[in-house]
Amino acid sequence: METILTVIPADKSAAVKTALLQAFQTEEPESIEILSGGLSTALVYKIGIRGKHYLLRLVMEVNAMNDPKRQFTCLRLAASAEIAPKVYYTSVTDGISITDFIYTQPQTDKTNLLHELATTAKKIHELPLFPSFMNFLEGIDLFIVGFKASGLFSATATAELFALYHKIRTTYHWQEVDLVSSHNDLNPNNILFDGAKSWIIDWEAAFLNDRYVDLAIIAQSYARKPEQQHLLLKTYFDAEPTDYQKARFFLMQQVCLLYYGLMMFRLVTDHVVTDTDLSAPSPEDFYALLAGGQVSLNNAEGQLQYGKVLFNQLLINLRSQKFEEALELLS
């Protein structure tokens, strides 16, 4: 049988026992199981105490992005609104949180799911303001510098993409009215449906940000078709979206494609040599491979391929007439 001493890193075991003692008046769970999935460096465990399961999360790398104080502040605010699972314990010093464990079920009604996600995004954005961290676009600027310095691709392979992206950078301006509490990573790994409602987990990337970031990330997984994107925006704004709102949404979609592409490439920098070929499957084909298990985002090969898929889709979008029209609306 697994115990804290056998599965928890030695430098965290005492702190975990303290957490369990304060939350549940016991130092040892009845069961403990490490969970996998996602790209976070945190260690996540399913623990059983008195016949109920909870989620134990350990922040293993503390830095500006992985800041337990900001993360747990956002988590507690979201939990108080029943957006995130109930919180039983947090320690900024030790980087530990304990929340309810969510037993997931498939959500088969995609229209209802999209309605719920739009409503959930709005609820997140109406929470008391999260701590500030960075201007999202300035953060991406730093990622671009790092990407170019890595030498992963030749400069010519991405020259057109970055030249076109620069048009967004000079046109899309931060507006106070759009700065809201944001999760910033509303992908399927972080949205858990329990059969009655969806719960949002993993708040390590949460901070004050542009409202269109969450909407664009939702659309990346759940609203790829124009009619789905219209429904997402109409539900979120509780009205027909204006041309200006649609333009900001479209441009932020491109920003987020770039962001996730850069994130994928950061993960593989140490595993591959300079690559001059950005060719990749279509998004539809790639997602089919992912769903079928032929590709995994848990290894460098899948991460590299996904980064290429995102960059290719981004370049197609940046070459479109819709892109020029969106820039014109915001200029």
Rank of each mutant, 00 (worst) to 15 (best):
P131S: 06
P131T: 09
P131K: 05
S132P: 03
F133V: 06
F133D: 07
F133A: 06
F133E: 14
M134D: 11
M134A: 15
M134E: 15
N135W: 05
N135C: 10
N135P: 00
N135G: 04
F136S: 12
F136T: 06
F136R: 13
L137C: 11
L137R: 14
E138N: 14
E138W: 02
G139L: 05
I140P: 00
D141F: 10
D141Y: 09
L142E: 10
L142M: 08
F143E: 15
I144P: 01
I144Q: 12
I144E: 11
V145Y: 02
G146P: 06
F147Y: 12
K148P: 02
A149S: 13
A149F: 03
A149C: 00
A149D: 15
S150G: 08
S150V: 05
G151T: 05
G151N: 04
G151H: 04
L152K: 01
L152A: 03
L152F: 01
F153P: 01
F153Q: 01
S154I: 05
S154Q: 09
S154R: 14
T158W: 03
A159Q: 13
E160C: 06
E160R: 07
L161D: 03
F162E: 02
F162H: 00
L164G: 04
Y165L: 04
Y165P: 00
H166N: 12
H166S: 15
K167A: 12
I168W: 01
T170H: 00
T171I: 13
Y172D: 04
H173A: 12
W174K: 15
W174P: 10
W174G: 00
W174N: 06
Q175Y: 07
Q175W: 06
Q175C: 08
V177T: 09
V177P: 03
D178S: 12
D178W: 09
L179W: 01
L179C: 13
V180S: 07
S181L: 07
S182Q: 09
S182H: 05
N184E: 04
D185P: 14
D185G: 09
D185N: 14
L186R: 11
N187M: 12
